[in-house]
Write a protein that binds this DNA or RNA. Structure first.
Length: 510
RNA sequence: GACCGGUUAGCUCAGUUGUUAGAGCAACGCCCUUUUAAGGCGUGGGUCCUGGGUUCGAGCCCCAGACCGGUCACCA
């Protein structure tokens, strides 16, 4: 790629810095006493002494040069603050090159510098670092987009092109205010859940991502090959079956933040790799798990946003316990006025037709129920809501309902019209489990490429005996979308999957 | 996968009825010692996504393709 005019000038500036005997990429530690935020939040005229000899480091993001003195803005990981650079103070001797040449001409927006000095308040009332010593820490060769924020806080020329933002997240993070905050919140979600679960004594574990048999969900996998054993392996679509093996082994509470991979379509709710937390607790059931999920996510909301009420688009979503609960049939009756619980497949088809829900002729009873629910109920469930008691056909890993024929002990948590969580009383009857797998195999033979595969080793584990267990999976990306008011999964993933850029492809082939 | 929209300077965007490509910021030069979307004067910078076509002439019209987004379909 040909370099732009500005890139050429930056390379020339780099060489000129070297020619002046300054290392543009020094290796020694630069000692920082404060972050920009620590200064801005704590400085007052009375505490001047505490801020008399301090240092900060970061990117130069703006220069306002006024002859022999200048203002500039330095951005560090905590924010941005103004610095004041005076020629005769950073160049106390005769040689004024550091100011006249290096600072004024050779330093560009995006360069990392470190500055030492004292804090003061300008005539216009802005806390500013008065620089007495300036060190070049790293030269930037590529111009960053310029985004400005005015006195009213209005952002001008924000980089909005999603392609730029997702492909060059590093630049998006530097220039767009608020992007970093999204990811800090995402991180806090993890911290919040970890502390919640650790306090209860559950153990965080790691299980294989490369699996000989993919299981625990219905999805198409990514396939890869292990040369040493000369066999195909799959990237996990879920870690459910491995965590249950650990429950068999005697861990009564295990969880894992699991990066899972599904070789399927992409949308603003789907990325080929995504993250779930899965948790399994022995001697519990799905009723117990509902209470735990409520409690945990309410805490997450408070830890991440400071409130149980989270603004998402036009909605205020309230995670305060208790959440609304419907059975699946109950939800359908609530939103359509039709009780389908006693209907056979043919009656259900008619009912669906009446509701203008379009069905595939191959759909069986369970699938029809799911279709009606997905069409008529799910989009209306904005506030966090539990839906319980799913048809058995769609839940091959869940225990049969203790009283209701044809259903399983399963719940999903729905929020903002989307599933965020899925849980069961886990099926621990090895004979029933084998039959369910076999039913899935039949589906597979009929061409369902998402049907589950029979996992003999998992069945062997179940045959040793697994205690009654409640299990849950929570979609971390979708929860992050809600907690950060993001409209797309790409906004809560640092590096969402993208098709390759044309010119980088050529380089790979060369 | 289908439909719709987008792609012009480093960034944000104009570009009329087809005839020499525009602005702001950024960059470069000069001035300026408390400015803050700093300011003043001046200058340079373009594969108009790619490839074909129509035309005397295409950023603009036509065809094909690439990438991005949205909606739908698919999808636990």
């Amino acid at each position: 790629m040909a370099l732009s005019e500005q890139e050429l000038i930056r390379r020339e500036n780099l060489q000129k810095i070297i020619d002046l005997g300054i290392n543009p990429y020094p290796s020694s530690e630069y000692s920082i006493t404060h972050s920009s935020a620590e200064i801005l939040d704590n400085y007052t005229e009375e505490k001047k002494d505490q801020f008399a000899e301090i240092s900060i480091a970061g990117r130069l993001m703006m220069k306002r040069i006024m002859g022999k003195a200048s203002f500039a803005e330095l951005q560090d990981s905590a924010g941005r603050m103004q610095i004041y650079v005076n020629r005769d103070e950073i160049c106390s001797g005769e040689d004024k090159a550091l100011y006249n040449t290096v600072f004024k001409k050779l330093l560009d927006i995006g360069d990392f510098i470190g500055v030492k000095g004292h804090t003061f308040t300008t005539q216009t009332g802005h806390t500013t670092l008065h620089v007495t010593e300036l060190t070049v820490l790293s030269k930037s060769l590529k111009p960053l987009p310029i985004v400005k924020t005015d006195a009213d806080g209005k952002v001008h020329d924000a980089v909005t092109d999603p392609e730029f933002r997702y492909r060059q997240r590093y630049a998006d993070l530097v220039v767009n205010p608020g992007v970093k905050e999204t990811f800090v919140k995402r991180s806090k979600m993890y911290t919040s859940m970890r502390s919640f679960l650790n306090e209860k004594g559950y153990i965080e574990v790691e299980t294989p991502i490369l699996q000989p048999i993919y299981g625990g969900a219905a999805a198409r996998p990514f396939k890869t090959h292990h040369n040493t054993h000369d066999r195909d392996l799959y990237l996990r679509i879920a870690n459910e079956l491995y965590l249950k093996r650990l429950v068999v082994g005697g861990f009564d509470g295990v969880y894992e933040f699991s990066k899972d991979f599904r070789n399927e379509g992409m949308s603003r709710f789907h990325n080929p790799e995504f993250t779930q937390i899965e948790l399994y607790v022995a001697y519990k059931d799905y009723e117990w798990m509902m209470n735990l999920v409520e409690e945990m996510i309410e805490k997450v909301a408070v830890d991440v946003t400071g409130s149980t009420v989270v603004k998402v688009g036009d909605n205020d979503i309230n995670f305060k316990r208790p959440w609304k609960r419907y059975t699946m049939y109950g939800a359908i009756e609530e939103f359509t006025g039709v009780d389908i619980s006693e209907m056979d497949e043919a009656q259900m088809r008619d009912a669906a037709k009446e509701m203008k829900v379009s069905l595939d002729p191959t759909m069986a009873r369970g699938k029809i129920i799911d279709e009606i629910f997905g069409e008529k109920c799910e989009p209306h469930l904005i506030q966090p809501t539990f839906i319980t008691d799913y048809p058995i056909e769609m839940s091959p890993l869940a225990k049969k309902h203790r009283t209701k024929e044809g259903l399983v002990e399963r719940f999903e948590a729905i929020c903002n019209g989307k599933e965020i969580s899925n849980a069961f009383s886990e099926l621990n009857d090895p004979i029933d489990q084998r039959e369910r797998f076999q039913a899935q195999l039949e589906l597979g033979k009929r061409g369902d490429d998402e049907a589950m595969v029979l996992d003999e080793d998992f069945l062997r584990a179940l045959e040793y005996g697994m205690p009654p267990t409640a299990g849950v999976g929570i979609g971390m990306d979708r929860l992050a979308m809600i907690m950060t008011n993001s409209n797309s999964i790409q906004d809560v993933l640092f590096f969402p999957q993208m098709k390759p850029e044309g010119h980088t492809e050529e380089k790979l082939e060369a």
